[in-house]
Design a protein around this nucleic acid. Sequence first.
DNA 1: TTTAGGGTCGGGAACGATTGCGTAAAAAAA
DNA 2: TTTTTTTACGCAATCGTTCCCGACCCTAAA
Lengths: 378, 378
Amino acid sequence: MTQRCLIVVPTLSTKQIAKKQVDRNLMKFEAVTIKDIAKELGLSTSTVSRALRDSYEISAETKKLVLECAERLQYRPNPIALSLKEKRSRSIGVIVCEIANSFFSQAINGIESVAYTQGYNVIITQSHESFDREVTDLDFLASRSVDGLIISVSSETQDFEHIKKFHNRGLPIVLFDRINEDIATHKVTVNNFKAAFEATMHLINGGMRRIACIVNPSHLSITKERIAGYKQALADSGIDYSDSLIKYCTKGGINGAEVEVAVNELLDLNPRPEAIFGLSDKLTVGAFKTLQSRKIKVPDEIAVIGFSNSELTELLSPSLTVIRQPAFQMGEIATQRLISLIESKRPSHDFIKEVLDTELIVRQSSVKPLGRVKSSGV
Amino acid sequence: MTQRCLIVVPTLSTKQIAKKQVDRNLMKFEAVTIKDIAKELGLSTSTVSRALRDSYEISAETKKLVLECAERLQYRPNPIALSLKEKRSRSIGVIVCEIANSFFSQAINGIESVAYTQGYNVIITQSHESFDREVTDLDFLASRSVDGLIISVSSETQDFEHIKKFHNRGLPIVLFDRINEDIATHKVTVNNFKAAFEATMHLINGGMRRIACIVNPSHLSITKERIAGYKQALADSGIDYSDSLIKYCTKGGINGAEVEVAVNELLDLNPRPEAIFGLSDKLTVGAFKTLQSRKIKVPDEIAVIGFSNSELTELLSPSLTVIRQPAFQMGEIATQRLISLIESKRPSHDFIKEVLDTELIVRQSSVKPLGRVKSSGV
DNA sequence: TTTAGGGTCGGGAACGATTGCGTAAAAAAA
DNA sequence: TTTTTTTACGCAATCGTTCCCGACCCTAAA
């Protein structure tokens, strides 16, 4: 339809027409360029370009002509040519461990919403909790010339050199959730210490003392902070800490088997723990699932509490007490920071570490029927 | 580190050095180009390019030299320049209504896994069940010159002209889940008729006759097919169909309020329906949630069954009987088809509509404790 | 009448990579 | 030794767009 206009234009040589025709037959998506407008109107590409950008050196009539023609031909500027010229792609890369995880899908929602309004593409990759895959993803995204990166590292990631490498080269990067203090850039996280502290206190106030944790690898920032909050709550309540109550899942519970093993080990303990605290979404749900399949009564035999952003936790039986993170908001903030980093003329040196508050939602799974409930949580 | 090599090269003019220096200070990510290698080695860019592509017209020594230099300078080809030249971006766009929906996040997982291995980027956008947003997304993606598109339309989409427009222009498109028969291209879907038929039969076999449905807008392909399956099951069982038992949710249950209203209307019916059939993920979960909050006993007072890909449905109380779609596989197939479309030399005219089977997972919510259970489902 | 200057526009280089074509030097054949 | 062939490389155009640098015409001041 729009292309047909081009064919009737006398200034198009037969050769050119033939070329467009062939492309048409091959059904390849051939976009209208600034050249087509120029030929249609007998102008130069520079004039057309300037007219479209509303430059002062183009007369009003010419502008009108060009604009009208662009509209008629359905001209769309080619972002790839722009990218090549401006050395930016207006796209940002995201690396998370998994999309099919409520926390991350909500965070991505936040990322996407901000990126969209600012005219940026979002390219999402998943590390699947694998360090190697994370490195590959990073190379991939950097080589696809994204303008910046939002990263939550995999559970296997101990070494951050692969990220530092690009960061040192000047690629804007924002870290969220699982962060690293050594990299000087914006970070977005929650108050993991406080969240874990409050959750643990909630259990302790409910009369429990043997509180087990199922956690991600110890080298992750979130693990350290959450464990610290847990320990602080124990210490404040005069409860001894025991290593035997902490079970690590190296793959972050991405496969259920790992969590199952951890839960079973905890159940074999003598005396059994009175509660299980899941230190991340997958771990909480995984632990709950294992307890259900083993017909362990929650919270009677063992209470459950944990981090989770799934919307279904309140419908579980018993309904699950969770720590909910402002995932969407985290994604929004991370993206705003990243874009400001990308668009700033000169490198900034004061970086913000945004620490958001979590929400403890107390439901059935953490309240023993006979327990003395002194507090309802927050 | 790598850039420093450039500075010591004598063939670089002072002006060029100054330029790189400034960029360095501005901390802008300046990539190594083929030119840098050429200057470093005193070769032409064409020779370097050919050496890197292992052309036969380049001597073995030169190749070795270039390869070594490229490695040392950490040269990465600029995909944007490639895209401009080859008129392809090696990226595919995805439009779904929502990422934070198990079905779609799993489908995206499938899409991403195939795209990744084939060297394609995935750019994800969400329509949030809005037709306008879908049109905007489409324009956005097309203007970002994606090589192809994978689309599941929004619940508001009745008119497919916006998609046809790009399809007719030759942009490869694959439809999945919510499809349209008028567009001649590959499609990936499930046997919705059979899925709904089986689910309905399962309820009927359990002794229920007044089976209500909560559904997406009637113009969607999946709605039509599922309703047809439902009606067929009723007809085969000699049960009269009643319009009053079908409740439409125009926004596909993206906000819970809509579903709540629908469920409440069903509960006000006299006599009350014996079962509620949720015809999509959000609707099933939303209906269940509403029933829970209203303290309606499931399945005793009312049974629940529905489409859902959430992994938590088995942990609900009662555990939820669901129809599970092979979402990951659907994403994989759609992407394979799309890439073959993109990479085919000439336009194909025989398109495949892939229809996959669903899985009915019978659990507690659909089985009345006193009902005569004749069949366990499939 | 000449010239300075503003208003409009075109030419051409650039962004990074590929590629057809031309060509020097080296090797092979005469 | 001369001619032909092969080897190995450079030049320049190309993709779509922007932008610097002229260049033209017309008007107004000198």
